[in-house]
Simulated assay, not measured.
Amino acid sequence: MKYKASCHCGQVAFEFEGEFKEALACNCSMCQRRGSLLWFLPREQLQLLTPEDAAARYTFNKHVIQHRFCPRCGIHAYGEGQDPKGQQVAAVNVRCVEGLDLDALPIHHFDGRAL
């Protein structure tokens, strides 16, 4: 299925295809504060609908994940990084996906604090 997603004000928007089986709730210092639910896909499957520089970047700790957020409304829309095999991945904040029933999506809790 094809999905569209965006920040609150629409300055950062993208689309992608996939099947949601679950979302990930991480308890690291960043994810716990922002309350995002994440779903991962290969980075090349995420198609930006707005210019790449519309989203600001933030990194912390080991600086391996590019947390992408809107500098206007502050919403974290997605992140970029590498999986353990070195493949480029995107982590979509499913709370930004249009028309998605979050109550129907199983949540996997991940201990990001332990990393």
Rank of each mutant, 00 (worst) to 15 (best):
L37Y: 12
C96K: 03
A90W: 01
L48V: 01
G99C: 01
D83W: 10
C9P: 08
P106G: 05
A77H: 05
C96A: 12
N93A: 08
G81L: 04
Q82T: 14
Y78L: 06
R34F: 12
H76R: 11
S29K: 06
G10N: 02
F60D: 00
C31E: 04
E44S: 09
L48K: 06
L24P: 03
V97W: 00
Q32F: 13
S29Y: 04
R68W: 03
E52W: 02
Q45I: 02
V94D: 05
C28M: 10
A104G: 15
P42L: 01
Q32W: 13
P106I: 05
R72T: 15
K21R: 15
K21Y: 13
N27S: 05
E19S: 12
E22W: 14
L100G: 09
F14M: 14
Q45D: 13
N61Y: 11
H76I: 02
V89L: 11
L48M: 15
A55R: 01
M1G: 15
D101S: 13
R33L: 02
F20S: 02
V97E: 09
F40D: 05
A13E: 00
G18M: 01
E15M: 10
Q47G: 00
C7V: 04
E15G: 09
G86M: 06
A56L: 06
E44T: 11
H76N: 12
G99F: 00
R33I: 02
A56C: 08
Y58F: 13
T50S: 06
C96I: 05
F40K: 06
K2P: 00
P106D: 07
E19T: 15
F16K: 03
L102G: 05
R113C: 14
V12S: 06
V64W: 12
R113P: 07
Q11C: 11
C70I: 11
C7I: 08
R72S: 14
R34T: 14
P51M: 06
I75C: 11
I75K: 06
V94N: 08
K62M: 12
D53Y: 03
V97I: 14
E98N: 13
D83V: 06
F40S: 12
G79T: 09
P42N: 04
Q32G: 11
V92F: 10
L24T: 14
R72M: 09
V12E: 08
I107D: 08
H109S: 13
C73W: 08
N93G: 05
N27A: 09
A13Y: 00
G10D: 02
G18N: 00
V92A: 03
A25S: 15
Q66E: 14
L102Q: 07
I65G: 03
A56G: 10
